[in-house]
């Protein structure tokens, strides 16, 4: 047992798993006992989706070290691909859980393809230029999905771009352009969200602790040094980027399947920024930080409801103050002094 935990990182990973399981059990039993308000209950699935989004973006920003401002684009691809898959398979797979699983896999797959298409050109750029191109891709994905029409009839799926007429014989429309998908059968559950978080954690922790993960982090810390010892820059960068995109796609499916309607405008630049805020506040490369930040900041506007119209203003002020408190040298010294004094007292 001691040997298993000898590595501090492994210990943190196990604590993260345990923490997520514990939180799930507490929330699930509270929800079953009626201890949660209906507003908070409705937030459980979106919270899980945002946690997975934050974890996957942390892989790009924290582990790979590249700033991405278009992560919501992958969520959008996953949401709509998953919604189409779920609607198309309604009669084939009647069981909601299994259908959700298949939809998530389809969503992740499509998002991964989008990740490859975006990643190949984007990862050639550096720093802020890379960030602006991810932003541009996010906006392009939004424009494409906004003008996409997909329907299904007896002959199978029909899709058209920019043109709302689908040449169908009866059947029904699944994606209706700017209106998006409506009348979704809600098959997402808190359990499914929890399982997706666990799978995401397993994937990320195993990647980070593998040979590939070390190569990715070497690229982040010093690209030139890493390149000179023979690490394939494109391969490893693309690997991290595509895994991150696929996870975001699965999160998108989870999110969409828990809503009545989703439209492309939900996954815009502001959503990308929101997820980035979770990652930075939680700490780069720190997965448990992302989980806490995403969960807390998704629920915070709900908790601030009594301040009604002031809540987003308070949210903004809290965000600025937290950034100042955690990054300003004066503040930092102040806090570290307090903690040091405590430490000395304990010794005495």
């Amino acid at each position: 047992m001691k040997k298993m935990f000898s590595n501090k990182k492994t210990l943190t990973n196990y604590i993260t798993y345990a923490g997520v399981i514990l939180l799930f059990v507490i929330l699930q039993s509270m929800s079953a006992a009626g201890g949660l308000s209906s507003a908070l209950k409705g937030q459980l699935v979106p919270v899980c989706a945002y946690v997975v989004m934050a974890l996957s973006l942390n892989l790009t920003v924290g582990v790979l070290g590249e700033l991405s401002l278009g992560h919501a684009g992958f969520m959008s691809v996953g949401a709509f691909a998953g919604a189409v898959a779920a609607a198309a398979l309604k009669d084939v797979i009647p069981a909601g859980g299994l259908r959700l699983l298949v939809a998530m896999i389809v969503g992740a797959l499509f998002a991964a393809i989008a990740g490859v298409i975006v990643g190949v050109p984007v990862l050639r750029l550096r720093g802020d230029y890379l960030a602006i191109v991810t932003l541009a891709f996010g906006e392009i994905i939004k424009s494409i999905v906004t003008n996409l029409y997909v329907g299904m009839d007896a002959n199978g799926l029909h899709a058209s771009f920019l043109n709302p007429t689908l040449h169908m014989e009866g059947g029904k429309i699944i994606i209706n352009g700017p209106m998006g998908v409506s009348g979704i059968a809600k098959i997402s559950s808190f359990l499914a969200g929890f399982l997706l978080i666990m799978v995401t954690l397993v994937i990320i922790f195993n990647l980070v602790n593998s040979r590939s993960g070390r190569a990715i982090m070497a690229l982040r810390d010093n690209r030139i040094a890493a390149e000179s010892v023979g690490i394939n820059v494109t391969k490893y960068k693309l690997m991290a980027f595509v895994i991150s995109a696929a996870l975001a796609g699965a999160a998108g499916t989870l999110f969409a399947m828990g809503q009545n309607t989703v439209s492309a405008s939900k996954f815009d630049f502001n959503t990308s920024i929101l997820v980035l805020v979770f990652v930075v506040l939680g700490g780069l490369g720190r997965m448990w930080g992302s989980i806490i930040a995403a969960a807390a900041l998704t629920v915070l506007p709900e908790l601030l409801r009594e301040f009604s119209e002031y809540r987003m203003l308070i949210y903004a002020i809290v965000l600025i103050l937290v950034m100042l408190a955690t990054n300003n040298p004066t503040f930092k010294n102040f806090f570290s002094k307090i903690f040091k004094r405590k430490g000395v007292k304990n010794h005495e």
């Binding site: 920003v61 805020v277 930075v280 903004a316 950034m323 990054n327």
Partner: peptide, 17 residues
């Protein structure tokens, strides 16, 4: 106050503003 901080921290603060 964030002159010495990482550019990402300043970016998030700008988003807050």
């Amino acid at each position: 106050p964030l002159r010495q901080a990482t550019s990402l921290a300043v970016l998030i603060t700008a988003i807050g503003v």
